[in-house]
Write a protein that binds this DNA or RNA. Structure first.
Lengths: 334, 334
DNA sequence: CCGGTTTACTAAATCGATTTAGTTAATGCA
DNA sequence: TGCATTAACTAAATCGATTTAGTAAACCGG
């Protein structure tokens, strides 16, 4: 049951390997009709299937790209991944997805493995800690696109949300509805992660715009497990917030869980708005007001950009920061 | 900026390529300490990184497996994929995921592409239409595991839910709560897809067990877009159901959407139970009773099984149908 | 100090394609 | 007829590793 190779096809069709290769690559320029038929026949009866590994070695390209997401638990990541996969498969590229789990060591390992596998390019939601690797890729003009997070000093393509606008949309909406004591909660504190920082700064600016004073007790970023507790704390402040902005989908889930535990009426006692669209937003009672990222578009753009770099690697180091506009879905929770 | 190869390392360290290869593969049996140091040094200063494509060609293995899911929109698929990826990455295997979109032609294309890429094995949620390809893989002893769906006549490993038990759990629970007019709704009608068929037959058997007569108006399988409409139809029957079992997560979402549109009180007017756990089940008001598949376990098992077959391909054709037990999460919606 | 063993390495074949530089035969045109 | 073209192929090098068979020197016991 050994593998059938091009050599076998060649022998069976009584031509050379070269001719078979030409045939497979549709270089029919000077190929006899008779020969063509014989090769076709040989391929059929032997059940030949090409070996892309061999071809990749020779051609120095694999038609495969890698995607390393910082944390696959975010719905945003999965939406972007789907968009990338759809686009790439359309273009006959394959995709290998890795989840760095917000761990720079894992990120390093995956970057190294994927490069060893000779992927033609990488889309990375960077943890931000492996500057040497990022630098090296850029220097080598290895096709690279960053998503969701910015590394200021690096000249590289980036696809991300206008995060300040996202918070602004949410705060504007809440302020318009008459809410004055607006809190914000987000996950992940450690490293300076772009979306978290920008969403908080956008929130501060928007408050200011509406003449509202930011209170530090209303601005919390903490790990998932302590989140519900903090919602409860906030609500038992002398002056509790009348609205909470969840800075991402995971924060939203925790807030909703706390709200249910405590039997808080939404939006009468507390308004809730989430950044990131979630599958259940409109099904919920009350339905949840959200600020949606155009995740699908962003994924598609990132993929398109990467595949383009694949053909023009000299342009890898041109810095392009593409900001996408979020959109508000006003619903019953605010 | 050309690539550094083993040859470059060898020259720089003044040894042969073979020695460098031994070094990289940690065959230190008879290697001088001095030589070792020189190679190490050369690798460092040149920034050498191995090329797995070349290695794969020689070794005839890629340390990569393919996963082809029938429809990635199901939460079950994404959970299984995550489990597979986690397990494989732990074992230093890579995973390429493809979404066949319930289209047998796409499935065929992906199977062919992945095999051309020389993946070491395939985990497939089979559409059921490409028997020739399935047959051929089994005949060639190509590592293969099926998930979620059964193809009766094929001797192959399968990982799936005890679907009849899932419906039974749901119906038992509903009957215990006093519901008598229990309906079931599911997506996808065309092909005879295992979970759909078994969940419906399990439902029928369970009804019978409880002395309830199955009514054809209560058993509906249709495409997503017409689903909401059908819920409304059902509820305006002379004798409307008092409970609906959603046979999967997508059906559940449609039912919940209809329930919200029509302002139906759950569970007073209509109880709702879903097969497949969804992220928002416990957050919802009312929280949703679900029957959970052990998706994570199933994915892990499928991956473990496949990697084992990778080492014992002679066992590919042994038929093993692994059935997993679902579990009930009783909540407020029933 | 001689034949065998052990140590430390290397040359060359190989994996399965692609590609370049030819080769041979047929054809065209003056 | 004679020389350049063109058509239809092919031989061999190549991609970057792994691996097998082999070599040469050092060692070692009798």
């Amino acid at each position: 049951m050994k593998k059938v190779t091009m050599r076998d096809v060649a022998e069976h069709a009584k031509v050379s390997k070269s001719t078979v290769s030409q045939y497979l690559n549709k270089r029919y320029d000077y190929m006899g009709a008779e020969t063509k038929k014989r090769i076709e026949e040989a391929i059929r009866v032997l059940g030949y299937q090409p070996n892309y590994v061999a071809r990749s070695l020779k051609q120095k390209k694999t038609s495969t790209i890698g995607v390393i997401v910082a944390n696959i638990l975010h719905s945003f990541s999965t939406q972007v991944i789907r968009a990338i996969e759809d686009y790439c498969h359309e273009q006959d590229f394959h995709v290998i997805v890795c989840n760095a789990d917000d761990d720079p060591e894992k990120e390093r390992k995956y970057i190294e493995m994927l490069r060893a596998k000779q992927v033609d390019g990488l889309i990375v939601f960077p943890t931000g800690e492996n500057l040497d690797l990022y630098d090296r890729m850029i220097e080598e003009k290895f096709p690279l696109v960053f998503v969701d997070r910015l590394i200021d000093q690096l000249p590289v393509r980036c696809v991300l949300l206008d995060n300040e606008a996202a918070s602004e949309l949410a705060v504007d909406h809440l302020a318009d509805q008459g809410y004055r004591r607006i809190a914000i909660m987000t996950t992940s504190l450690e490293r300076k992660i772009t979306p978290r920082i920008e969403r908080i700064s956008g929130y501060r600016k928007a408050l200011e715009k509406h003449g509202l004073e930011p209170k530090e007790e209303y601005i919390k970023s903490l790990e998932i497990p302590s989140m519900k507790e903090e919602v409860k704390n906030m609500l038992s402040l002398p002056e509790p917030p009348d609205a909470i902005l969840a800075a991402n989908d995971m924060a939203l889930m925790e807030i909703l869980s706390a709200v249910k535990d405590e039997n808080i009426r939404v939006p009468e006692e507390l308004a809730v708005v989430g950044i990131d669209e979630v599958s259940f937003a409109s099904l919920f009672t009350p339905s949840i007001t959200t600020v949606e990222q155009p995740a699908f578009l962003m994924g598609k753009e990132a993929a398109a950009m990467l595949l383009e770099l694949t053909e023009k690697p000299e342009r890898v180091a041109e810095k392009h920061v593409l900001r996408y506009e979020p959109s508000l879905h006003p619903r019953e929770s605010s």
